[in-house]
Amino acid sequence: MTYLDVFRLAKDTLSARTVYTDPCERDGVTVIAAATIHGGGGGGSGTELITEGAGFGVCARPAGAFVIRGSSVRWRPAIDVNRLIGTIGAVVIAVLITRR
């Protein structure tokens, strides 16, 4: 894989199509799901044995969905229960430590 292949892959991966799904409609309600995406890449060249190299990584998480009913649009955030429990636990521990 060359540098140009990695850049093309990154361009195709980090697009609006990746963030927003195709609209799904049922019973007059349209839902468009959305995600947050983080990506990174790197590359380099080497010696006679390794002429070039490149890599790319992506992390995606659900963010929520737009719900469309008639002319009304509402944002419904996705709730990450594991992250919520971890945050509450960290706050409880911090409060217990600072109360001493």
Rank of each mutant, 00 (worst) to 15 (best):
M1T: 14
M1C: 11
Y3D: 10
Y3Q: 12
L4K: 15
D5W: 03
D5H: 15
V6Y: 04
V6T: 15
F7T: 10
R8I: 13
K11Y: 15
K11A: 14
K11Q: 14
K11D: 11
D12A: 09
D12F: 08
T13D: 08
T13Q: 06
L14F: 05
S15H: 08
A16G: 14
A16P: 08
T18Q: 09
V19T: 10
Y20N: 12
T21K: 05
T21F: 09
D22K: 15
D22P: 14
C24E: 13
R26S: 12
R26P: 11
D27K: 13
D27Y: 08
T30K: 04
T30N: 01
V31E: 01
V31S: 02
I32S: 00
I32Y: 01
A33F: 11
A33I: 05
I37E: 02
H38M: 13
H38E: 11
G39T: 10
G41A: 11
G42W: 10
G42H: 10
G43N: 07
S45H: 09
S45E: 12
G46T: 05
T47V: 12
T47S: 15
T47L: 09
E48P: 05
E48K: 13
E48H: 07
E48G: 08
E48A: 14
L49R: 15
T51H: 10
T51L: 11
E52C: 13
E52P: 05
G53R: 10
A54W: 05
F56M: 13
G57V: 15
G57R: 12
V58Y: 00
V58R: 00
V58D: 02
A60G: 07
R61P: 04
P62Y: 08
P62Q: 03
P62T: 12
G64A: 04
G64D: 02
G64P: 02
A65R: 04
A65D: 03
F66Y: 10
F66T: 02
F66N: 00
R69I: 12
R69L: 01
S71Y: 03
R74A: 07
R76H: 09
R76E: 11
P77D: 07
P77F: 09
P77H: 03
P77R: 04
A78H: 15
D80V: 02
N82W: 10
N82Y: 13
N82T: 06
R83E: 03
R83W: 08
G86I: 06
T87N: 11
T87I: 15
I88W: 13
G89L: 11
A90G: 07
V91I: 15
V95W: 09
V95F: 14
V95P: 03
V95Y: 07
V95G: 03
L96P: 00
L96D: 02
L96H: 07
I97C: 08
R100I: 02
